[in-house]
Amino acid sequence: MNSQNPVIQVDGLSRSYRDVAALWDVTFSLQPNMICGLLGRNGAGKTTLMRMLTGQDFPSAGSVRLFGENPVENSTVLQQICFVSEAQRYPDGFQARHVLAGAPWFFADWDAAFADDLVGKFRLPLKRDVKKLSRGQQSALGVIVGLASRASITIFDEPYLGLDAVARHTFYDTLLADYAERPRTILLSTHLIDEVSNLLEHVLVLDEGRLLLDQSAESLRGSAAAVAGRAGDVDSFVEGRQILHRDTLGGLATVTIAGRLTAADHRAATAANLEIAPVSFQQLIVDLSTRSAPAPAVASVVHE
């Protein structure tokens, strides 16, 4: 599968606003037909990256290629991509039905029947000004456009604001079902990492404008562990390992370490009266992006 041409190719991409670097030397490529998570803290550069992928902003240096082409003002490329932005604005008096009626102009593979079905699932009022819809209803509209666009590259930027847990799971389930039927490239930017982690095949993590991680979700899962016990015992166990996080409570310590533990490690830990607990996907990303050490070292340690 990896022999295919990448659907997204980003090389040495940087973007500065005055003297602030929003993105710095970001390089990655995505094979077609994957659900990829774009993760990172606020201000990490996620939205900047997505805006450049969709031709809405220009690189200060480096390049973006979608289907091998520059997306900027490229209608052939733009018809095949859909960007659902949290900041989407519509003209005054625009109703949800106007948005859906106009969508076929922008998306070559728009499926109107699927959109109608989704309007029912999300209980979206069609004849009300978009500006008067609740935050959750506006998000639902974005999700409906994103799913029904059936675009070869669909990018969701925090699509769930104001959506309750039921609506979010409707989104996840619908995304999964439709993706299974019609594989395409989905880039999903989100803070709710634990909610979506099982849906992801690949993960990109940005931190302060740099690409911290670019790897399969499967290889990231279980690539860190939390060791807890008496501080002295914990410290001797984790010596020489990559420490991601350390908490202490009196004489007790919990230390998160990178890398997979072997069966022998587990036996040694049991013998030293240490508890080993898995680290959730979300916690791992939090630990990685709050560290002060330079990014490349972390990525190479977790990668093995």
Binding site: I35, D173, L176, A180, E181, N198, L199, E201, A217, E218
Partner: peptide, 17 residues
């Protein structure tokens, strides 16, 4: 594979694996 993916709410590639 797709039915497994839907049922367990996981990526179809993972279910396939």
């Amino acid at each position: 594979t797709n039915e497994f993916a839907m049922f367990y709410r996981i990526n179809p590639a993972t279910a396939g694996k």
